[in-house]
Simulated assay, not measured.
Amino acid sequence: MADLMNGAVVVTGGSRGIGASISIELAKLGFHVACLSRSGDLPDASALDDAASKRLTGVRCDITDSASVHEVFSGLSKKLGQPIVGLVNNAGVHLQGPSATFALADYERVMTTNATSVLLMSQAAYPHLRESGSALIVNIGSFYDKLGVKGNLAYCASKAAVGAMSRCLAVEWARDGIRVVNIAPGYIETDLNREELNEGALQAFLKKRIPAGGPGKTEDIGRLAAMLFQLPRSFLTGETLYVDGGQGMAL
């Protein structure tokens, strides 16, 4: 594990929300973290000490563009000064609307951002991960992958695709020492949705609907993702881990 901890992990959407929490938790463990986003901004690292903060690197990248993705990976290991031992496919978009009139352009945007990018990133990372000998890809799906949700055809389909891709890559790349695990969150409070989730009617609904008593925190996902990276050469691969406070199974 000491060798793994000396490596670098690439996190998409690493500047805010769940991606920021994952990046921070990995930096705490000693990983060097490339936080990819369109802006190239760093997450708020005020809770980290100076040494951990210096292990975070902001990288500008359009994860839906193959050229942009491959350009980033071409010099990333050298830039970070560490071999790439992990990838977290977290970035995504959520567009909704009635299925009968949902614009094809919006459907394609959701699928490209949430699912196609997972393939692009994984393909670009593959040579680096294979070379490390013990690597991990963590995909961030959603518990919507097993639900039928009105107005969410594209989002549900994209997250179901992430689960299927995780299984396929896990089987195909196991011999290369690469594990793949899909984390499927339920409702998670972030800086982007905090106001909406704490609105009276929705807040009351979620408290009643989620057995755990309400939405989770970004730290719930960040700590789980970081824990998976502490299990090098683990037998765990190809699985979807639901983190939804029991909502997806509750009647």
Score class of each variant (00 low, 15 high):
Ser99Leu: 15
Glu131Trp: 05
Arg55Leu: 04
Gly58Val: 02
Val69Met: 14
Thr57Leu: 03
Ala105Leu: 01
Leu129Glu: 08
His94Leu: 02
Ile84Ser: 00
Asn139Asp: 09
His70Pro: 00
Ser158Lys: 09
Ala125Gly: 05
Leu56Tyr: 09
Asp44Tyr: 10
Tyr107Gln: 06
Leu48Val: 11
Gln123Pro: 03
Thr64Glu: 10
Arg130Glu: 15
Phe73His: 12
Asn89Trp: 06
Asn152Ile: 00
Val85Asn: 09
Ser158Ile: 10
Gly86Met: 07
Gly148Trp: 02
Val59Tyr: 00
Thr57Ala: 09
Gly151Asp: 06
Ala103Asp: 11
Gly86Trp: 00
Ala47Trp: 01
Leu104Asp: 15
Lys79Val: 01
Leu129Gly: 12
Ala51His: 07
Gln96Cys: 09
Gly97Lys: 04
Phe73Gly: 02
Lys146Asn: 14
Ser46His: 08
Asn114Ile: 10
Ala100Ile: 08
Ser99Gln: 06
Arg130Lys: 15
Gly151Leu: 08
Gln82Cys: 15
Cys61Gly: 06
Glu131Ser: 15
Asp62Val: 06
Leu136Arg: 01
Ser142Glu: 12
Gln82Leu: 03
Ala51Gly: 05
Ser117Arg: 15
Asn90His: 09
His94Tyr: 12
Gln96Lys: 09
Ala154Lys: 07
Asn114Cys: 12
Ser117Leu: 07
Leu48His: 02
Leu87Val: 04
Phe143Ile: 14
Ala157Asn: 09
Met111Lys: 03
Gly148Gln: 01
Ser66Arg: 15
